[in-house]
């Protein structure tokens, strides 16, 4: 049990990932699936960024004087995740555009009903 409470960042990230995944799989409304995808991606970013945290150090912003590099947290994961966030936003935009198109064709955004309609046509 101590493992879970000591690394609370990672535990929180995994729980969020689980919530996002379940939302993606179980709901049949497309908008809820997109929300689930977003929660999943955010959980992974949290997991990665928390790997850069060093206790009791501060954020790597130069205020007036540059300090010793040892007194800052590791900035590499944050910089890498910036790209990841942009990719997640782009995927969300694309998925939303597809949802609008699906609505125009089928007049519903319920994925199960859409699959049924496909079997008939």
């Amino acid at each position: 049990m101590e493992i879970f409470t000591e690394n609370y960042f990672e535990t929180g990230a995994i729980i969020l990932f689980g919530i996002g995944f379940v939302t993606l799989m179980l709901h049949s409304n497309l908008i809820k699936k997109i929300i689930g995808m977003n929660i999943m991606d955010t959980a992974i970013f949290l997991f990665f960024i928390s790997k850069g945290y060093v206790t009791n150090k501060e954020a790597p912003i130069v205020v007036d004087i540059t300090k010793n590099p040892d007194s800052y947290i590791n900035p590499v994961p944050s910089a890498l995740m910036l790209t990841g966030i942009v990719v997640a936003v782009t995927t969300t935009a694309f998925a939303l555009a597809l949802t609008i198109k699906l609505y125009k064709h089928y007049n519903t955004i319920d994925l199960e009903k859409i699959l049924e309609m496909r079997e008939e046509s």
Binding site: A93, L96, A97, I100, K101, K104
Partner: peptide, 11 residues
């Protein structure tokens, strides 16, 4: 541009 395409409903 993405916003204006969405709001004019002609995706």
């Amino acid at each position: 541009i993405i916003f204006s395409i969405f709001i004019s409903k002609e995706v």
